[in-house]
């Protein structure tokens, strides 16, 4: 009596490969191969190390940022939390605490910052864009206020070395182990848990999510806390990597993170996006900057190219829809003023 259904409408390889995420990964591969062949010193031993050391904070923060953006919210305060965490690490270490203890306290401060954002967004119901523009200034103000314009540079060499050390002679920095572990955890959280399904539901239709029993408020709150915690962790790394705690560390980093997340195929409206695309997006920007630097192209041109790439990637779904609509029209007889096909079975409205 009852029907049977195929679980999937497309074969496995199509579902896996013909996606926005794989388009970014393919583009990354093309750019890497091109650079290896044409950019002098791109295949040098230090290129990979510096590329990964430089993009590590972006890679780390992009993980929770992806989840936040999938719920339809945004966190603009991440770079300020990096700065605050950096200053706290410096001040606490100067006061005599060891690096692990000071680092842990700095991360707890990040948790508190994230909880503050999350409380205002999830439970008070304020728009995250406004809240985190406010806390962007607030947390940065605290960081600069604590330390003024001076810098603390007196960190133990062993920790500074660890922050830049590589795994054996692979050229891959040790910090990548931390990143890979976190990336796996965040991927499991987003793609393979009920909490992750709730993240997508919240982004696609918060009202229906609420009716289905998803705890929309708690979901958003937890994600802002994770964003604060990981940003503070990135702040600790940032400080040790450059051996310098300053109030203005990582200014503007939030825009690089968000740009990479969007480039990786996450919809700014929420509900869509996966982490492998985002990671490829971050690395794509890193590789392009690195290759252009080796070619001695000015940083301003690098920014122009990355900006154009981002605009193109955000436009691409609409352009593709327009092109396929146009071909479909050309193939069918008769011109039609309406490009949007109207579902026949749907309710007229």
């Amino acid at each position: 009596m009852s029907r049977e259904y195929a679980p999937y409408s497309q074969p496995l390889w199509r579902r896996l490969l013909l996606t926005r995420e794989w388009a970014v990964i393919a583009l990354l591969a093309v750019v890497v191969l091109y650079s290896l062949a044409n950019v002098r010193n791109f295949d040098g031993p230090l290129t990979l190390t510096f590329l990964l050391l430089d993009t590590a904070p972006i890679l780390l923060i992009a993980l929770p940022m992806t989840l936040v953006i999938v719920t339809g919210e945004i966190d603009l305060s991440v770079a300020s939390i990096v700065g605050l965490s950096s200053v706290l690490l410096g001040v606490l270490h100067e006061a005599g605490l060891s690096i692990p203890v000071a680092g842990l306290l700095a991360i707890l401060a990040g948790v508190a910052c994230g909880a503050f954002n999350g409380f205002l967004v999830a439970y008070v119901g304020l728009p995250s864009l406004a809240v985190t523009i406010g806390t962007l200034a607030l947390f940065r103000g605290l960081a600069v206020g604590l330390l003024g314009t001076k810098a603390i540079t007196d960190f133990p060499d062993s920790w500074k070395d660890l922050a830049t050390a590589t795994i054996g002679d692979t050229g891959v920095p040790v910090v990548m182990i931390l990143f890979v572990v976190l990336a796996l955890l965040f991927t499991l959280l987003l793609q393979f848990t009920t909490f992750g399904r709730g993240i997508y539901d919240t982004g696609l239709n918060p009202e229906a999510a609420h009716f289905t029993g998803v705890n929309v408020e708690r979901t958003k709150f937890i994600l802002f806390v994770l964003s604060g915690a990981v940003s503070a962790l990135a702040g600790v790394y940032y400080t040790l990597r450059f051996g310098s705690a300053r109030g203005d560390n990582a200014v503007g980093l939030e825009l690089q993170v968000i740009a990479a997340v969007l480039l990786g195929g996450v919809s700014i409206f929420g509900g869509r996006g996966k982490l492998h695309g985002v990671i490829a997006g971050v690395l794509l920007i890193g590789v392009i900057s690195s290759a252009l630097r080796l070619e001695s192209v000015q940083v301003s041109y690098t920014n122009v190219i990355i900006g154009l790439l981002l605009v193109a990637s955000v436009m691409s779904p609409s352009v593709l829809a327009w092109v396929s609509g146009k071909t479909a029209r050309r193939n069918k007889r008769g011109p039609g003023p309406q490009s949007a096909p109207v579902g026949v079975g749907t309710q007229g409205r």
Partner: peptide, 19 residues
């Protein structure tokens, strides 16, 4: 199946279905 939902596969979007 019990409700005889008309769809070709279970991973199809619900957006284009009739009311």
């Amino acid at each position: 199946g019990r409700l005889e939902v008309k769809t070709s596969a279970l991973d199809m979007n619900a957006a284009t279905m009739s009311g």
